[in-house]
Nucleic acid binder design. Structure first.
Length: 613
RNA sequence: GCCGGCGUAGCUCAAUGGCAGAGCAACCGCCUUGUAAGCGGUAGGUUAUGGGUUCGAUUCCCAUCGUCGGCUCCA
């Protein structure tokens, strides 16, 4: 654990930022980074051999590998990738040296005269101010080229000395995808080949295993297999149908969410799905968010918009009465369903949809209450996330951007409150300077799932804009009107996305409290059916979700099916159990505790439900 | 939205310019079973939709819709 205490003039924030940057820099200086970057050059060499007229763009190393973008005479096929990969391995085995050379812009232009993308890059380097990715930089960058084999590339490096440092058995091309030149949708679409490289074959296999594992846990796959949710052509893209199993899980999530909110001083509100255009004009959404909103519905000559956010409604509830400083903080919570236009290409299972339910809340407080309110939101959020098995949480703190509204002094206050709350919560965080919304700074919380992948869930956003626009007030101790602070907060984000993350986190094997079916009663023969039904009734009365598998199947088949449905408890009932008034427990894990009394099983189940395991 | 791939029974997947098939699931029987699939039978299709080429299209071409991998954008 790093010492996080401030030292001298160096702020805590600075330390953290430095620590995180050095992690990135560490990678950029590693041998693995060189291997990947060099492998991408080898790939370009192989591609140019195959397509001599190809235009090359850029080919960096990235987090899990590398890519290279090409402008090619035709679309690549999977067979091309196999061929290119095979050729790459040959090139690697040739033991090509990587030779660095510094040249002038003039020489570079001559060398790459047939490569328009390179010429554009050279232009950027020549003028300065732009690095090879087109990002602004103050550095004066020398123009360097690297030659390996028959391929010379404009490149900053670094590279391996020789391809002998690359393990040909630890190199693999993964897929082809379209990518805009310089990420700009107005520029040409190039073909990007993704690949990866490691130092050893074992590491590559480990990576591929992880990819395979992620594929197996894909929420879209499990959603179908476990009958949790679906989408439907006739209903429309990005609109989710929650099936009974998924809906039961959502119900349990919401029940817990409700209980926790009530216990923590929130008031529930419910608001409509549409609102008049005036509302959205006042809120500013028609000004800055219109491209994400659906076309209006006209009712008696008035335009109504389907809501993309809940905040204007909550504000109107606040404004429905005169508020005293004594009333604050006010915390309005709503699982509010919103609709946003998303481009068809970005939709993805439950993770990115067009209609979703935010677990939304708006906090209104006095300036003096603000630090405590942030503290509260943060610790409340962490405790709820923990209940879902997410104990590894980290944060992004995003501060004032160039364009912003609100008094800079208020921004500074808010940013400080956010930062100190993070410190008190002991959360590791990263600073995204200038990354806040125009209306306020924010904290985003991200969690790590069972596969170590990070997902952003919660967001805690200050808003200096809406209270102003809506003219929100409270009467202070001095008898004068004052403007309240407003904080938006989504804890799980959206029910859809959270559910998707949860499915993948648990691999479909939900803890007992969430499992749509908690126990399956498995009678061995028909003569055990009555006893099974009697038990089922009793378990249901005790609040358990159970079924009897009464099919004319072998016990083995029933176990197999319950196992595949990831039911946590299988209760086998045969002559012995019936006689002794017992059940024989088999767990989803394969663990087989065996026969126990009905009371024992109930106590065990209740315990695990309470403990959320 | 853009580039590319894909779309065959409820699900997972075959096949071919010339009668569209399997396993699982469903349904009907038989079996009455001890910790991951008992056996037999029946039914199930305008091959996503709409055009075109062809004597003939599920197969080839075009468009639309959906979906997958990315890009861009984001809860």
């Amino acid at each position: 654990m790093r010492d996080l205490s401030p030292q001298g003039a160096r702020s805590f924030l600075f330390n953290i930022k430095e620590a995180l940057m050095s992690k990135q820099e560490e990678y950029e200086h590693s041998q693995l980074y060189r291997i990947r970057h060099s492998t991408s050059h080898i790939m370009a060499e192989a591609v140019l051999e195959k397509f001599p007229t190809a235009k090359v763009a850029i080919g960096p190393a990235i987090e899990d590998g590398f890519y290279y973008d090409f402008d090619l005479p035709r679309s690549l096929t999977p067979e091309d990738l196999t061929e290119i990969e095979a050729r790459m391995k040959e090139l690697i085995c040739e033991g090509q040296a990587f030779v660095r050379q510094e040249i002038t812009a003039q020489q570079a232009k001559e060398l790459f005269k047939d490569q328009p993308y390179k010429l554009e890059l050279i232009g950027g380097l020549e003028q300065g101010g732009l690095d090879e990715d087109g990002n602004p930089t103050d550095e004066r960058i020398p123009i360097t080229i690297y030659t390996s084999g028959h391929f010379t590339d404009l490149c900053r490096g670094p590279h391996v000395q020789n391809t002998r440092e690359i393990n040909p058995d630890a190199v693999k091309l993964l897929n082809v995808a379209g990518a805009y030149w310089r990420g700009d949708e107005k520029r040409p679409m190039l073909q990007r080949i993704y690949g990866t490289a490691f130092e050893t074959k074992e590491q590559l296999d480990g990576y591929l295993w992880k990819m395979e594992e992620a594929r197996k846990r894909d929420h879209r796959k499990l959603g179908k297999e476990l009958d949790l949710f679906s989408q439907n052509d006739e209903v429309g893209q990005g609109l989710i149908l929650w099936h009974p199993n998924g809906a039961m899980i959502r119900h349990e999530i919401e029940r817990y969410w409700d209980d926790e909110h009530i216990a923590n001083g929130y008031d529930f509100v419910y608001t409509p799905h549409i609102g008049r255009s005036n509302l959205w004009e006042t809120s500013g959404h028609l000004g800055f968010y219109k491209e994400n909103m659906y076309s209006p519905i006209v009712i008696e000559d008035q335009e109504y918009y389907i809501k993309p956010m809940n905040c204007p409604f909550h504000i109107q509830i606040y404004k429905s009465a005169m508020r005293s400083y004594r009333d604050l903080p006010i915390r309005y919570a709503e699982k509010g369903t919103v609709y946003r236009y998303e481009r068809s290409g970005v939709l993805h299972g439950l993770m990115r949809v067009r209609g979703f339910t935010q677990d939304d809340a708006h906090h209104f407080c006095r300036p003096d209450q603000m630090p405590a309110e942030i503290d509260f939101i943060l610790s409340f959020s962490l405790s709820v996330l923990r209940a879902f098995g997410f104990s590894e949480v980290s944060a992004y703190l995003s501060t004032m951007p160039q364009k912003s509204v609100g008094d800079p002094a208020l921004w500074a206050d808010a940013e400080q409150a956010l930062e100190e709350a993070l410190k008190r919560a002991g959360l590791p965080y990263e600073l995204d300077a200038g990354g806040g919304a125009f209306y306020g700074p924010k904290i985003d919380l991200k969690i790590k799932d069972a596969l170590g992948r990070e997902w952003q869930l919660s967001t805690i956003q200050f808003d200096f804009n809406l209270p102003e626009r809506f003219g929100m007030e409270y009467i202070g101790e001095d008898g004068q009107p004052h403007r309240p602070y407003m904080i938006h907060r989504a804890l799980l984000g959206s029910m859809e996305r959270f559910f998707g993350i949860l499915i993948e986190h648990y691999g479909g094997a939900f803890p007992v409290w969430l499992a749509p079916k908690q126990a399956m009663l498995i009678p061995i023969a028909d003569r055990h059916l009555d006893y099974a039904y009697e038990l089922a009734k009793r378990f249901k009365q005790a609040g358990l979700r159970v079924s009897v598998d009464a099919r004319a199947e072998r016990m083995n088949a029933k176990i197999r099916d319950a196992q595949n449905a990831k039911v946590p408890y299988m209760l086998v009932i045969g002559d012995r159990e019936m006689e002794a008034g017992q059940v024989a427990l088999r767990r989803r894990s394969g663990e087989n505790p065996g026969a126990m009394s009905v009371e024992e099983f109930l106590a065990l189940a209740k315990q695990e439900i309470v403990e959320k395991i």
